[in-house]
């Protein structure tokens, strides 16, 4: 029983992270019918941004950028980061600040990717867009290896973690609690943006029919850019949250996680926001259960086995609806 509970807690925590990434996939697919392969790598960049915001880019890098970094507070922050520079102490507030900054940077990255890679190819076939997405993904992975260095980095501890014992012998780490609370807060926030604001209504209109939305006076380019910003920010949040749970970041960490999150989006019904959350949680829980009860070696195959099953029996996903193609 305690194993089950333990795996369930781990699974929900992992699943919440998959869900956050899956949201970005599903929103972009909903609007552009594009599998944004680069999304997993935006998540990686998010984790690295968190790493640099907390720990700084090092004295040498800061010197190259601004001469004598020790002379003012910005220089110190650049060189040593929020934590290393002694500007902030490890606490929940620090974690939030780091995450929000990383989200902002990645939102910008998402907009840049959309503007310079996806928008120029939007007029061509969807295949072209898909290949461009693969290109952007490869660029971020390999560019990341050059810029950040290929070896894994140790993510600084943003707040003091400890274990809390639960009934039945299971225990939960404060990191997991924080991850869960933040992740669900973000999902609720996203839901509010999409269903309660004017921009959200425009997003839904664009995903329903891009051309009609344009005819209704919606600035579709802006809405698409906004969607990318939103999705990328979610991915960055997921990156920082993952790094809080498992403090290790490397430039290729986004590949497999990105693919699984994508599977989660398909499982829930691609284009469907609650579906992405459900899919993420299901994939996370199944994966940890397989690790706990069967064999950890096959954990990476689980998501894809689920994918093939879902396509066999319910190709539109759990919450998706089938759309009849019309001429």
């Amino acid at each position: 029983m305690s194993t089950f509970l333990q795996q369930l807690i781990n699974g929900i925590s992992l699943g919440a992270i998959y869900a956050l990434i899956a949201l970005g996939y599903t929103m972009v697919y909903g609007i552009l019918r594009l599998i944004n392969f680069a999304h997993g790598d935006v998540y990686m960049v998010g984790a690295f941004m968190g790493y640099y915001i907390a720990g700084g880019i090092g004295l040498r890098g800061a010197q190259m950028l601004m001469g004598n970094p020790e002379s003012n507070v910005f220089g110190r922050m650049l060189a040593h980061g929020l934590l290393g520079g002694g500007i902030m102490q490890p606490s929940l507030i620090t974690a939030l600040v780091v995450m929000l900054l990383a989200m902002a940077i990645c939102a910008l990255l998402g907009v840049i990717i959309e503007r310079f890679a996806y928008r120029p190819v939007r007029k061509y076939s969807r295949l072209t867009a898909l290949i461009t997405a693969i290109g952007v993904s490869l660029l971020l992975e390999n560019g990341g290896q050059v810029v950040f260095g290929a070896d894994p980095k140790f993510f600084p501890e943003l707040f003091t973690k400890r274990n809390i014992n639960l009934f039945g012998g299971a225990s939960i780490n404060t990191a997991d609690i924080v991850v869960l609370i933040i992740a669900f807060a973000l999902m609720v926030g996203l839901q509010l943006v999409v269903y309660r604001t004017k921009t959200g209504r425009a997003m839904r209109a664009v995903s329903f029919n891009l051309n009609s939305a344009k005819l209704m006076g919606i600035n579709t380019d802006r809405i698409i850019a906004f969607t990318f910003a939103l999705g990328s920010a979610m991915a960055a949040a997921a990156g920082v949250l993952v790094a809080i749970r498992i403090p290790r970041v490397d430039p290729l960490m986004g590949i497999l996680v990105g693919l699984k999150a994508f599977v989660a989006a398909v499982l829930g019904g691609i284009g469907n926001i609650p579906g992405a959350v459900l899919g993420g949680l299901l994939i996370g829980i199944t994966e940890t259960m397989v690790v706990g009860y069967l064999s950890p070696t096959y954990k990476d195959a689980v998501a894809f086995a689920i994918l093939i099953l879902i396509l066999l029996f319910r190709p539109s996903g759990l919450l998706g609806s089938t759309v009849q193609e019309k001429v």
């Binding site: 898909l130 990476d300 894809f304 093939i308 190709p315 193609e325």
Partner: peptide, 28 residues
């Protein structure tokens, strides 16, 4: 057979998954 019955990006998704599963099995 399962993926080509459907129209759209499903083949891309499934072949992607298949490629991953194969590597996992080869490793084990």
């Amino acid at each position: 057979v399962p993926s080509l019955r459907l129209k759209g990006d499903y083949l891309a998704i499934v072949t992607l998954g298949f490629g991953q599963i194969i590597v996992v099995f080869l490793n084990n």
